[in-house]
Design a protein around this nucleic acid. Structure first.
Lengths: 222, 222
DNA sequence: CCGATGTTTAACAGAGTTGTTAAACATAAT
DNA sequence: ATTATGTTTAACAACTCTGTTAAACATCGG
């Protein structure tokens, strides 16, 4: 049953079922039995192909994290104005999230309940953040000096962008639950949300006559 | 062993242990055995006092949700300017969250994995939201008409405030993990974050000369 | 002291979890 | 056809989870 890509069809079926269940229920609550059942095989097959639950999970997590890092690295193309870059960052991140709706909550679960599993990505994440800091932080400060941009701490700005995008998708299950949105309303809400995030970001960075609270302390977290 | 408050000391010990474990591990992963062990009793005691895991959980969740609703209702005192109200909303919500650091992720877990358990709060949440809409929405629209405020959809604004605050605390475990913050850095980060959230909100609402993206569509989700 | 009541323990039941293993099955090469 | 190889199954082991129960223990009113 070996196919051209080197995977057997059952191997792929297990991977697909596992990915869906891990994202749906999280690492601990997605059981090997349920994964096997969804793939249409005995749970012994899962251990035959991947030995342990942890190994199959890491294979899936790796795939998704790689896509995330690729997105993070390509997100900032240097030959654009800051204003264009910011819009691009929000849009790309946002579209990545709509293709990986449940990745954020999985990562948050992992950070909370099995941090050791998250360990393998820490170095890479820090490295990526640091690199982007060096690439773009100076530029923000220069524009702030020139007065074409309201001063903002770089880390706070990144945190703001990421958290505004993330929380939209983190809150989605809750919104569906409480407000009973259908898929048309959901699409409309997400689109309106994306625009509002850019609006807010632009207001913070390029708006004039901001109140005195806009003063920024110099301390930086990283 | 009955004490003055009507609870036995073991009953209280179980409640305390349960609260800590439920917030730490979530509903499904906090086991009755572990709760009993932490309380220093046999797990049979847990069933003697509370019959089932679900009942003890609901008792704890109820307590926390009540505090949340109280906070939500008292958060908007009507005899303040909009500007003052907004700052007050952010500050109260933020301080509530620092006292209930792990409530958001528990609620998100619940919405995802046991929505039926969340069901009992839906009506009350909708009701609270609706009430606040009627109380304050007109006021925002009036000020926007008068030009003392940039126009913004009320729901989007509430979502923005809540999500900026929430995501700060949702990301905290991850930040500790990745950047290894000590508690002094953490306090500084949280304080800087709180100020930045107010800055951003003020910029969006009161900033002048916002780019064309600031136009707001009229459609409303609720 | 005694019995009624409330509390605690230890053992058990039943279901579900991850992981192993020996035997059955399929398939292709010799 | 036979053998070697890879795949699949069903049964099993060891563990953990929730919940029950009968018996032991404490405490206090009479």
């Amino acid at each position: 049953m070996v196919e051209t890509n080197g995977h057997t069809s059952t191997e792929q079926a297990i991977l697909d079922a596992a990915e869906e269940l891990f994202f749906d229920k999280g690492y601990k609550l997605a059981t090997t039995t349920a994964i096997a059942a969804k793939a249409g095989v005995t749970h012994a097959m899962l251990h035959y192909y991947f030995r342990t639950k942890e190994q199959i999970f890491l294979k899936i997590l790796d795939k998704n994290m790689n896509e995330m890092f690729t997105m993070l690295q390509t997100v900032m193309s240097p030959d654009l104005t800051l204003k264009e870059i910011l819009k691009e960052v929000v849009n790309l991140h946002y579209s990545f999230l709509s293709r990986h709706e449940k990745l954020p909550s999985l990562i948050l679960e992992l950070a909370g309940t099995c941090p050791e599993m998250f360990h393998r990505y820490k170095a890479r994440l820090r490295e990526t953040v640091d690199k982007e800091v060096f690439n773009h932080r100076m530029r923000f400060d220069r524009e702030a000096d020139a007065g074409t941009l309201n001063r903002i701490d770089w880390f706070q700005m990144m945190f703001m962008i990421i958290s505004m995008n993330l929380s939209t998708f983190l809150a989605l299950p809750l919104m569906r639950n409480v407000f009973g949105m259908d898929s048309r309303q959901e699409t409309a809400f997400l689109e309106e949300r994306r625009k509002e995030i850019i609006r807010t970001l632009y207001a913070r960075l390029f708006g004039k006559g901001l109140p005195e609270e806009s003063a920024v302390s110099q301390e930086c977290i990283i």
